[in-house]
Design a protein around this nucleic acid. Structure first.
Lengths: 153, 153
DNA sequence: TATTGTTATACTCTATAACTATA
DNA sequence: TATAGTTATAGAGTATAACAATA
C-alpha cells in the first residue's frame, strides 16, 4: 500500500493545477469558455453575430472573404452567418462593380440600429466582466493580447 | 449615389476593427483560436488530453467530477475522454472507498511517462507562442488572466 | 430525495470537397 | 487556370435528458 492509497482524494478546492495555471494557452482557453458562458447568459445574439455586424458597420462594402478572415470564420460558415443576418433584414449583399465574383456587405438601417443597441449593452457587459481589473490593468491586458495576436496571425 | 458607393471596399490590410480590438472578450477568443491552430499543427494529441493527464498526475485519486469541473468539461464528455485514455492504457479508474458512486482516477506508469514527454514539448511550444512577449510581460499576462478567471469562476 | 457517473442523443460549430460564375 | 462565394456534407465538440447505482 502506497501513500497514494491512503491519502484522501483532493476535493475541488484543494486541487493542484499550478503547472497548468502557468500556461498562457490554458488560461486563455478557460477564460474564453467563461466569457462565452456569460455572454450567452446575457444576450440573445451570439458573439459572432455581434462582431460581424460591427465589422460591416465599420467597413461598409467589406468583402465576404475579408470579413471571414478578420473574424477567423471559414468562408462556408460565414455564408451561413450572413444568410441569417440577411434573412433577419440586418445585412445586404451586393456584387462588387470591379469583380462580379465578390460580394460586398453593408448594413441596412435596421442592422445599423441593432448594432448600436448591441454596442451599448456589450460595453456594459465588458465592464462587468473586467471588474476585477483596474482601468490600467485592462489596458495592459488588451495590449499584451494584441501583441501576441499580431505575432501569431 | 452615396460616398459609400464610390469608395473602394477596404482590403484586409486596411480594415478598421478598432472597437472590436478594444474588447477583451474578442481578443481572448481570437487568441484562443490562434493558439488552438498552432497546437493542432504541432502535436498529435489534443489540449484536453494533455490537461486531463497532467491534472490526474498532479492530483492522483482525483474524482471524475472534480476533474470535469477543473477543466470546464461536462461530465458526459469527460466520460468519453477518460474512456479513450483508459483504452490507451494511460489512466486507471477505481471506485472510491468512502463513496462507491465516485470514480477515482490515476495514471498508469505508461501514462505518467507520456505526460512527462508531453510537458517538455508543451513547454517549448509555449515559449515559441509567447516569443513576442518579454518574460516580465508573460508573467503579467498570466497574472491578469488568472485574476479575471478567479473572479468569473 | 439527491448525487456520481454513464448512456444515448441531439445540436452547434467547424472543416472539407465539389460546384458556379467570374477573372 | 485561379479565385470568390456557395452548396452539400461530414466530423468534432458540446449540451441535455434519462438512467443505474449509491448516498
Amino acid at each position: 500500500m502506497t501513500p497514494q492509497d491512503i491519502s484522501p482524494a483532493p476535493d475541488a478546492a484543494a486541487l493542484d493545477l499550478s503547472p497548468l495555471d502557468e500556461l498562457v494557452g490554458f488560461n486563455i482557453h478557460i477564460l474564453d469558455l467563461l466569457m462565452y458562458q456569460r455572454f450567452y447568459a446575457s444576450f440573445d445574439f451570439t458573439p459572432g453575430t455581434f462582431s460581424a455586424l460591427l465589422a460591416i458597420k465599420l467597413n461598409p462594402g467589406i468583402r465576404h472573404g475579408a470579413l471571414a478572415d478578420a473574424l477567423m470564420i471559414q468562408r462556408p460558415n460565414m455564408t451561413k452567418l450572413i444568410n441569417r443576418l440577411e434573412r433577419a433584414g440586418y445585412v445586404r449583399r451586393r456584387a462588387a462593380k470591379d469583380d462580379q465574383r465578390s460580394v460586398m456587405l453593408r448594413l441596412s438601417d435596421k442592422g445599423a440600429q441593432a448594432v448600436e443597441e448591441m454596442r451599448a449593452a456589450i460595453a456594459a457587459h465588458e465592464d462587468r466582466l473586467t471588474a476585477s481589473l483596474t482601468p490600467r490593468e485592462r489596458k495592459t491586458l488588451r495590449l499584451l493580447l494584441r501583441k501576441m495576436i499580431v505575432r501569431l496571425r
